[in-house]
Amino acid sequence: MNIFRFAGDMTHLVSVLLLLLKIYATKSCSGISLKTQELYALVFLTRYLDLFTDFISIYNTVMKVIFITSSLAIVWCMRAHPTVRRSYDRDQDTFRHHFLVLLSFIMALFFPDLFTTREVLWAFSIYLEAVAILPQLVLLQRCRNVDNLTTHYIFFLGSYRALYVLNWIYRYFTEKHAGRWISWISGLVQTVLYLDFFYYYFISWKSSEKLRLPA
């Protein structure tokens, strides 16, 4: 494991902790897209199917368990927690995320690495994750006042895959490990989708004002 990969995993972990902190500390999920959280839960459930079959390392297993349980806990909180669910902006979070699931699944059927159940589901999870942030970014444009924890959460969530891209570049030059083109392309698409947000996040940080995405 190289520093980029480890930094990417830690960044991803921090984003999850920031979201849990926001929901726990403010007892509110305002500004958070339930649809993006549901898509991420689906991403982890379909990507980590080998959790019980292939043991890679303690670290690998622990991280997979953390990501699966936290994403399910957040979806549960936003749907069922008596206090938190009331702050969910249902009428603003209207992205048709079912189309993202359908599109990713069709892509995985046509472009898996291997045409086996596990590889098709793995490719599905990779394609889906690339677009999973869209409902959240759309919601962010609609919600004017989003708290800082939420913007930091999105920043770290977007940064982790960018660090993974650096990890693949590093591995390409050091281990001659070409990596999987599915991961490369999806990881690049995923990171590009955040560029707009990163720009406004940087502007808001420099001018120390609230982050505002243009309408």
Partner: peptide, 10 residues
């Protein structure tokens, strides 16, 4: 193998 390598990533 590249496949296993990729699967050790999260």
């Amino acid at each position: 193998t590249p496949r296993k390598e990729a699967h050790d990533e999260l």
